[in-house]
Computed example of a mutant assay.
Amino acid sequence: MESYKAGDIVYVFYRNPHTQDVANIQEATIVNNPESPGELALFLYETYYPLTNETAVYSSQVEAEQAYQQFF
Rank of each mutant, 00 (worst) to 15 (best):
E35F: 15
P17T: 06
Q26H: 09
S59D: 13
E46V: 07
Y58D: 01
T52L: 12
N24G: 04
A23G: 04
N33D: 15
A67P: 03
E2R: 13
T29P: 03
A41Q: 06
A23N: 04
G7N: 09
A23Q: 10
Q69P: 00
G7C: 10
T55N: 06
D8H: 10
S3Y: 08
M1T: 05
V22W: 01
P37W: 10
F71N: 05
L40R: 06
N33F: 14
L40M: 14
A23R: 08
P34I: 14
T29K: 15
Y4F: 15
N32L: 12
L51K: 04
Y45H: 11
H18I: 04
A67M: 08
N16A: 09
Q66A: 14
S59K: 11
I9K: 11
V10S: 05
K5H: 14
E39H: 13
V22F: 00
L42V: 05
T19G: 02
N16C: 11
Y45N: 12
I9H: 07
Y48T: 09
P50V: 14
N33H: 11
S36Q: 14
T55A: 08
Y48L: 08
F13D: 04
Y45V: 05
Y45E: 08
Q61L: 12
E39V: 07
S36I: 12
Q26W: 03
S59R: 14
Y48G: 05
A23V: 05
Y49N: 04
P50A: 15
T47I: 12
I9F: 10
A41V: 10
A41D: 05
N24Y: 00
Y68Q: 01
V31E: 15
A6S: 15
P34R: 10
F71H: 05
A28Y: 08
Q26I: 01
E27S: 07
Y48I: 07
F71R: 06
Y45I: 08
N24H: 03
M1R: 06
F71V: 07
Y4A: 07
A41C: 14
Y49A: 06
F13M: 09
S36Y: 13
E63G: 03
D8G: 08
Q26D: 05
E2F: 09
F43G: 00
V10W: 02
T47S: 13
T19I: 15
A67H: 03
F43Q: 04
G38S: 11
Y4G: 04
Y49G: 04
L44F: 03
Q20M: 11
A56I: 02
S36E: 15
L51Q: 04
P34C: 14
N24C: 02
N33M: 13
I25S: 04
F13K: 06
G38E: 10
L44H: 01
E65G: 02
E65L: 06
A67C: 09
R15T: 01
K5A: 14
E27I: 01
Q70A: 07
R15E: 00
T52K: 09
Q20E: 10
A28E: 06
E2D: 12
P34L: 13
L51S: 06
Q66I: 02
Y11M: 01
